[in-house]
Amino acid sequence: MNSRTIEIAVGVFVALGLAAFFMLAMKVSNLISYESETGYQISARFDNIGGLRERSPVAVAGVRIGKVSSIVYDNETYEAVVVMEIEPQYNRFPIDTSAGILTAGLLGEQYVGLEPGAEEEFLKTNSVITVTQSAIVLEEVIGQFLYSKADEKE
């Protein structure tokens, strides 16, 4: 076969391979969300974060508006500090906004749900959400239920 044809075929092959790799990186993996780290950060303190992890979604009214960027344990207050990164266009959260750790479905992934408050000032970079609702740990709920049942009988 003509060496020019071979060169063209190999060129097409390499281009196809690279195109496939970029398609996977851009369309299917989270590489895009690495780049878009331009949002503003707010943090919240929780007694218990359950199964929340880094990169878990942050949602308002069920709509994803950001992600958890880091989770640290505070040695002084015995609380978990969850730092969230909110996309810059969602910048109108009142300062008395509350945060809760919720579960998508019965067994789904856990995420941070924000509930906007009523104040006139808005959360800014590095603001701290003070009103928080910890994750519901199934064992605790069942334990409380059993105790209350036992109390009723007595």
Partner: peptide
């Protein structure tokens, strides 16, 4: 690696 990328993408 090129073939693998194509395989996964397809």
């Amino acid at each position: 690696p090129l073939l693998t990328a194509v395989f996964i993408a397809v």
